[in-house]
Write a protein that binds this DNA or RNA. Structure first.
Length: 153
DNA sequence: GCCAACGTTGGC
DNA sequence: GCCAACGTTGGC
């Protein structure tokens, strides 16, 4: 089992939206970056654990955890021309983009703010904390995962 | 294949 | 709103 961090713009899809989703489950559509796509398509497995991260908001940080319930499959939003995630180059015969399904595991009482993560020496190598890091899907080390859980309040 | 220009991300 | 960092595009 592996660990991941998924970023979502809080105003677009946040952890309360996930909580309210049917079976607290959603497909993680709209990733349009090749490196992140490769993680979704090739590496993320059913049962992997996910930190749900809020970006682009007043307090960016980790809002909770989720579990992968379905492994990588073609992102059909890419061939829906009414979707924001439409990509003319992708089609169902030759899909470019992939998504997984996740189910909410736990919504933290308090968000673990990015500023708090930055203070932790043990997390200095975390992908999300690297300068200029923009990848929306990043691997999390097992040690990072368990350490971050101790930061909850 | 190089690289400048451009659009996007996302913290602050 | 600003702007640094990044990924993509496209001319050459």
């Amino acid at each position: 089992m592996k660990y991941w961090l998924f970023k979502s713009e809080e105003s677009v899809f946040n952890i309360c939206d996930l909580l309210k989703s049917p079976k607290k489950t959603t497909c993680w559509e709209g990733v349009r970056n090749y490196q992140a796509r490769n993680f979704l398509r090739d590496e993320i497995e059913k049962g992997d654990m996910v930190f749900f991260y809020h970006s682009n908001c007043e307090t960016p940080g980790i809002a909770g955890t989720a579990v992968v319930t379905k492994e990588g499959y073609p992102d059909s939003y890419a061939w829906n021309d009414r979707s924001n995630y439409f990509d003319v180059k992708s089609n169902y015969k030759k899909p470019i983009w992939y998504m997984v399904d996740i189910r909410l595991k736990r919504k933290f009482k308090n968000i673990i703010p990015l500023s708090e993560l930055r203070k932790q020496t043990k997390l200095k190598d975390m992908k999300i904390l690297q300068k200029g890091s923009r990848l929306s899907v990043t691997p999390v080390a097992k040690e990072e995962w368990s350490f971050i859980l101790t930061l909850k309040r």
